[in-house]
Simulated assay, not measured.
Amino acid sequence: MYAVVAVIKAGSDLRRMPVDTSSLTDAFWAHAQESDGLEHVRVAHAVDGVSVALFMTARDRTEAAATALVLCWRLVVAVPSFAGWYVESCLVHGARR
């Protein structure tokens, strides 16, 4: 399992979080596909956005990062209250077996 941390930020003219962290966690689960390998989600407020820790099963770090990035963008595009938001970064921080 890989721990991937993504930062999702508001555009320059947006300043507030569109949903609370528990609703955002639910949104990740609602938009995840079985093939994403999502095992756990943790969302926290960050400067001008949110930090999301995604714990994912994947063949390697590259696949974990790519899948997490696609999932984050899927959420940003699909949730209307995230209009104007973007995924700033998506980094794999380690693997656990």
Rank of each mutant, 00 (worst) to 15 (best):
V4M: 13
V5T: 15
V5L: 13
A6N: 11
V7F: 05
V7S: 14
I8M: 12
K9P: 00
A10P: 00
G11K: 00
S12N: 11
D13Y: 14
L14F: 07
R16T: 15
R16K: 05
R16H: 08
R16F: 14
V19H: 06
V19P: 00
V19L: 14
V19K: 02
D20P: 02
D20V: 04
T21D: 06
S23E: 12
S23G: 06
L24I: 04
L24Q: 07
T25W: 02
D26M: 08
A27W: 00
A27R: 02
A27S: 09
F28K: 02
F28N: 04
W29M: 12
W29Q: 10
W29P: 06
A30M: 12
A30F: 04
H31T: 05
H31P: 04
H31V: 06
H31A: 11
H31M: 11
H31D: 06
A32P: 07
A32M: 10
A32L: 04
A32Y: 06
E34M: 09
D36T: 03
L38Q: 00
L38F: 12
E39F: 04
E39V: 15
E39Q: 14
H40P: 05
H40G: 05
R42K: 15
V43K: 04
A44L: 14
A44K: 15
H45A: 15
A46D: 14
G49N: 06
G49E: 07
V50Q: 00
V50C: 03
S51K: 13
S51I: 11
S51F: 03
V52Y: 03
A53L: 11
A53I: 04
A53T: 15
L54R: 02
L54E: 07
F55I: 13
M56R: 07
T57H: 11
A58Q: 01
R59S: 14
D60T: 05
D60P: 09
R61Q: 08
T62V: 15
T62W: 07
T62A: 13
T62E: 13
E63S: 13
A64M: 07
A64W: 04
A65T: 13
A66E: 15
T67N: 08
A68M: 09
L69C: 09
L71I: 06
L71C: 04
C72H: 00
C72Q: 01
W73G: 03
W73T: 12
R74T: 15
L75M: 10
L75I: 14
V76A: 03
V76Y: 01
V76E: 01
V77E: 15
V77R: 12
V77N: 05
V77M: 03
V77D: 13
V79E: 07
V79H: 00
P80I: 04
S81D: 11
S81G: 09
A83M: 00
G84W: 02
G84F: 02
G84N: 05
W85H: 00
Y86M: 01
V87M: 02
V87L: 08
L91M: 11
V92S: 13
V92Q: 10
V92M: 10
V92D: 13
V92C: 14
H93V: 10
H93C: 08
G94M: 11
G94Q: 07
R97Q: 07
